[in-house]
Design a protein around this nucleic acid. Structure first.
Lengths: 202, 202
DNA sequence: ATATATAATTACACAATGTATAATTATGTC
DNA sequence: GACATAATTATACATTGTGTAATTATATAT
């Protein structure tokens, strides 16, 4: 769905332009070392325009990651039909998601902190399902239909849980990439998510 | 364990003084409306001294909540022996914790966002178990000994999960205090934590 | 096509945040 | 009492984020 009128298109363009320039700077100098001033100058726009689009620096990283996530999720929707049950779908989806994180650890970290903070403060607009989250949500919905996932908990809360577990894996992995067996940790985490802290039947 | 030397004692004193003054201001004017400048002026110390103790405003709220949480947890350690199993202990502990949150919703919210953000960025020093977390950790350890809690997941990760679930309850409750049945939600959340997203046996 | 409304961008000013540096004061140690 | 250490302070500064009003580009109605 391309933007209807030219105004929207122009706005989109500056937005995309900002993201492109900013991410370039982030990757060259690091997120912390890049200032909003610098981004505005490099993008050749007024600082205020930059703030009109993104009120804080983290939001730029977040927007970028969302775009990436969107594309990724689109390519991974096949997971839904190629796997027989919720557990294997979650495993597959997480596996794909981490392949991306591995290539952008810093932005992934920034983004995670930003989202967690906004989860409690935000007006809800920032909490829209990103690509990967949308995929996860669909997996959970199918799981509910199949009777594999409980229906007395809002999907939103389940998604939050997955996000946090996902985040903790990323962080552990970033701390010590050598000894960390990513796939094993993912499997363990999915198990925790599905069967809880008891890990056994009631 | 009172501070050993006078230097430490003085430092503690200014720190406590800052917290006392700041929280007073927070409760009178709100957190957002209170500036670091104002806190420094009211506390009659240099702004830089304030920043030496707390590098961001949220850290003051966090320190206060930690102190409160410490006292609370101390008073609630009896829960460990007065309840027969992990589930009822968790329920009781969360129940007590929320009684406090109800009296300080704003600070609770600030603090939660701050911790969530720092969970991934922090150097670990801020992630020390607070009072309530310490109690939760003890509950989980006893649960592991009794075979009620799985041992293949680090306690730290389980605590994180509880924190997030706790947080989501608080937020939902803050959004709509009328229709929200706090006790029922707590029970549901504990169930989710213990038995996972499937909610049934494997 | 022209006038009018709307929305993005801009320039400017400002309050607040957070950091860096060096001087000053209080405390601990010899 | 002399020296080292650590907290506090004064000062200056870069950065962040917001508020206001002017300017430009686009959309819409006549």
């Amino acid at each position: 769905m391309p933007p209807a009128n030219r105004t929207e298109k122009r706005k989109q363009q500056t937005r995309d332009h900002i993201i492109r320039i900013a991410v370039e700077l982030f990757q060259h100098q690091g997120f912390q070392a890049t200032t909003m001033d610098q981004i505005a100058t490099e993008a050749d726009i007024a600082r205020k325009t930059l703030y009109n689009h993104f009120s804080v620096k983290e939001a730029i990283a977040d927007a970028y990651v969302r775009d990436q996530s969107m594309a990724l999720a689109k390519a991974n929707r096949q997971i839904l039909d190629r796997h027989p049950d919720t557990a294997s779908r979650l495993l597959a989806a997480l596996d794909k998601a981490y392949a991306w994180v591995e290539t952008n650890p810093e932005l992934a970290r920034i983004c995670l902190g930003y989202r967690m903070k906004n989860m409690w403060h935000g007006d809800g607009s920032e909490n829209e399902e990103t690509g990967t989250q949308g995929l996860m949500a669909e997996i959970l919905r199918r799981g509910q239909k199949a009777g594999e996932i409980r229906t007395d908990i809002p999907i939103k809360l389940l998604l939050l849980q997955i996000d946090v577990l996902r985040g903790s894996i990323v962080m552990d992995w970033l701390r010590d990439r050598e000894s960390f067996k990513l796939r094993r940790e993912i499997a363990r985490t999915v198990d925790l998510f599905l069967y809880g802290a008891t890990g056994k039947k009631r």
